[in-house]
């Protein structure tokens, strides 16, 4: 059982590291095509990361060890996230649970690491980005917790693999009102957490409107590569979580080469579909004013709260 879980975790991490830049490339490509452009091709993020790793690391005067460790912590937390979330299969470690509280905690480690990197250089834009990032995180984390908690009530366990397992066995529960409310809330929270439209514009050049980009302004070379890869991995892992909750098919419940292969193919297809949908929706959205973002996130929290209430009512009925 333990070996199974280890094999699965390693597979998930390797698959996600390979797939994630391609997913980002796919999303940029979809956007380019909708804008009438030709697009740089889906391998472009891989070329960018490879180039950044080969470049010199320049440090702004006054920066500390946080500048170098923060990005590594972010990547490490994202890799743990990829190992914990049931993306390829639902075999969990007995001692390290893929519990929803563990997952949100790991998510928060990455968030804080990124915010510290933004603060480290002491530049105005970095501090502004960090403060915005933490404001959004404070509003998002409860929503993620409550939304998945709503899904865990009928099952009686907050382990993600068991939630996904039960949805695989009774697909009717996916279209239940509780599940739909929770998924919409979760989707909005994931979009905010990963700095996508309409909360943040990932391709902006205007420092005043930046959230995620502002924190990376002073990073270069290897540090920047880790920051980019870490943030992309978070996006891919959370999209993968939504994919596993909406379409729980294809996940490996026991580990054999064949089930692993099916799981990998399934997660690739799910990520491609979700990435293309997200990129398409983003084309139609404008960035929200920063002061409107809490309203959006409060709305998603209300949906999550309704989901929890509804799931208690259905359990008792």
């Amino acid at each position: 059982m333990r070996l199974d879980a280890a094999v699965l975790a390693v597979t998930q991490v390797v698959v996600m590291v390979v797939l994630t830049p391609l997913l980002i490339g796919l999303m940029r490509q979809v956007r380019s095509r909708l804008e009438g452009r030709a697009g740089a091709g889906i391998a472009q993020p891989w070329r960018d990361v490879r180039k950044l790793l080969a470049k010199e690391v320049l440090k702004a005067p006054g920066t500390s060890w946080v500048q170098a460790t923060g990005p590594v912590v972010l990547v490490a937390s994202s890799l743990v996230l990829c190992a914990l979330i049931p993306l390829v299969g639902t075999v969990a470690f007995p001692l390290i649970p893929d519990d929803l509280f563990v997952v949100v905690g790991v998510l928060l480690i990455g968030t804080v690491a990124l915010a510290l990197v933004g603060l480290d250089a002491g530049s105005a834009f970095g501090g502004m980005g960090s403060s915005r990032h933490m404001t959004i995180a404070a509003l998002v984390e409860p929503t993620v917790l409550v939304a998945i908690y709503a899904l865990s009530v009928p099952i009686g366990s907050s382990a993600l693999s068991q939630i996904v397992d039960s949805r695989m066995q009774s697909p009717a529960s996916i279209a239940a009102p509780v599940s739909l409310l929770a998924l919409v809330a979760l989707a909005i929270a994931v979009i905010a957490e990963t700095s996508r439209m309409p909360v943040d514009n990932p391709s902006t050049h205007l420092e005043l409107t930046m959230v995620h980009e502002a924190m990376t302004l002073e990073s270069s070379g290897r540090d920047l590569a880790w920051l980019e890869l870490g943030s992309w991995l978070r996006l891919a892992a959370l999209l993968g979580l939504i994919g596993a909750l909406v379409l729980p098919w294809g996940l490996a419940t026991e580990i054999t080469p064949l089930t692993l292969l099916i799981g990998v193919v399934a997660v690739t297809i799910k990520l491609a579909i979700l990435g293309a949908v997200l990129a398409t929706v983003e084309v139609f959205l404008a960035k929200l004013r920063l002061f409107r973002v809490p309203e959006l996130l409060a709305g998603s929290f209300v949906l999550a709260l309704l989901a929890v209430t509804a799931s208690y009512l259905t359990v008792q009925a």
Binding site: S32, R37, G39, R47, M210, E213, L217, S219
Partner: peptide, 21 residues
Amino acid sequence: GPVYDVERYGARLVASPRHAD
């Protein structure tokens, strides 16, 4: 812009010299 689209050849404008080549 979309017509000449130099981004298709791998060039991109960035907001910080530390990100630039």
